[in-house]
Design a binder for these strands. Sequence first.
DNA 1: ATGGAGCTCATACTTTAGTACCATTTTCTG
DNA 2: CAGAAAATGGTACTAAAGTATGAGCTCCAT
Lengths: 139, 139
Amino acid sequence: MAILVFVLKWLQWKYLIVDNAIDIYVGLIAVFFTILGIWLATQLTKPKVEQVIVEKEVYVPLSEDFAINQSALEALNLTKREFEILQLISSGHSNAEIADNLFLSLSTVKTHLSNLYVKMDVKRRTQAVDRAKKLQIVP
Amino acid sequence: MAILVFVLKWLQWKYLIVDNAIDIYVGLIAVFFTILGIWLATQLTKPKVEQVIVEKEVYVPLSEDFAINQSALEALNLTKREFEILQLISSGHSNAEIADNLFLSLSTVKTHLSNLYVKMDVKRRTQAVDRAKKLQIVP
DNA sequence: ATGGAGCTCATACTTTAGTACCATTTTCTG
DNA sequence: CAGAAAATGGTACTAAAGTATGAGCTCCAT
């Protein structure tokens, strides 16, 4: 603003003696401030963010080709721990190994498994694994 | 431009008699043209678009039918009976059930399984099943 | 014919898995 | 905050799985 006033005063002194110089003066100001406005606008407008979703085909390797059957899993109504332990017996772990991995006692693992067998309607861990694979709730 | 000149003339006539009114005059012009510039900029410039590319993984389903990995099976060097019993434990059968199905004694089943575990380099039936599935020698 | 491979079975044993029942603590949830 | 659900753990027991060893049988190839 200080600069602006100074410029105005200078222009006033220089051109005020000339008749009609006021028109040129105003024209210059108009042009100047129009450019200023344009510059302000380009600086201040936020860029619109546009999300472009690119579908990328993923050929999953056989070992990882597994999409969990969420509905089947929910139908079984398993708890977190039960499902966790189911995953571990599916990959061939013994109860003792599971207890070690999850920092649980053997008792707890057995308790979870017993409840799991009831929920899955099976009698053995091997049956549980077979059923889980058929239901596609484990790889 | 015609409108602009008209407005200027009008303002000139109205305020020129007043001393220092020129400052207000110029201020108004400045504000007006700044706004004009902003308006022009928003109208004329293309909207800035920031593209955010989001990769969406599309899982390509693989064929469901099971093709046995013959070479892996041969590499294990299993006998007929051992493979037969492997298939049965894979579907969750107990040793007693296997003995019944194949008209064998429990001892025989256990013997075959012990040999099987050695050949597959596993310690438990669940590990054997897991490995067999990973090798794709059972569904 | 004979020796090896595969199949069968047995006994005796150890280990692991599974059942039943109970108790405490933690974590949600209405 | 009270009650339910989940998680944890213990004991005692039974059932199943797994190990080790030995032995008889059949079939096939050298």
